[in-house]
């Protein structure tokens, strides 16, 4: 039970967030994430056969979300450009370098303005700490695309920092 609680604490916010990007409803997303984690409990003995539990749960959330959309006649084929990406939270708590909140805001803006496709990849990589291969499987895209998109995201962030540094000096 303690183990299950830990798993829940680790993964629930990420899974709920990912489901939200597809169904675009907080309530539905919470329900889906709860369902997915319920499955973990119900099938805990069988889950030993799953090679990558985290990816399995993200994939389950994706499938459940698409199913929900279909039930509500909102179904459209899974498209990276039609997701609504939200981060679990913005990135407060800065130290040392990121002392000024102005810079923080600039960075946050840069991230928010990323194209949807780029944003979801950045979010899964950074916030949910999924690996290249995991994102590739989940979003059905190539590792090369992920590599490129993450470079684009970091480039935008670097530009925001540069702008700030120049302005300061």
């Amino acid at each position: 039970m303690a183990a299950y609680k830990k798993l829940f604490h680790c993964l629930f916010p990420s899974i709920q967030n990912f489901a939200f990007s597809i169904v675009k409803s907080r309530q539905l997303a919470e329900e889906i994430a709860s369902d997915v984690l319920m499955e973990v409990w119900v099938r805990r003995l069988k889950l030993m056969e799953v090679a990558n539990l985290r990816l399995y749960l993200f994939t389950s959330a994706k499938n459940a979300s698409l199913k929900k959309l279909k039930q509500e006649n909102r179904f459209s084929p899974f498209s990276l450009d039609e997701l609504q990406v939200e981060f679990i939270s913005d990135y407060g708590n800065p130290e040392e370098i990121l002392n000024g909140s102005e810079l923080e805001k600039k960075v946050q803006e840069a991230i928010n303005e990323l194209p949807t496709r780029c944003k979801i990849i950045y979010k899964l990589a950074k916030e949910d700490k999924l690996r290249y291969s995991e994102i590739a499987e989940l979003l059905e895209i190539s590792v090369k695309t992920i590599d490129n998109q993450l470079v684009i995201a970091n480039k935008k962030i670097i530009s925001a920092i540069k702008y700030f540094v120049r302005k300061k000096s």
């Binding site: 609680k5 319920m38 708590n93 370098i97 540069k162 540094v165």
Partner: peptide
Amino acid sequence: LIQSLTHIWNTSPARDEDFLEATFLAH
């Protein structure tokens, strides 16, 4: 720039443990 970028990358979202615990109990 690289240091800042690394810092941003490594900053994890703040977590609301109480809220998470309440969500867990509801679950």
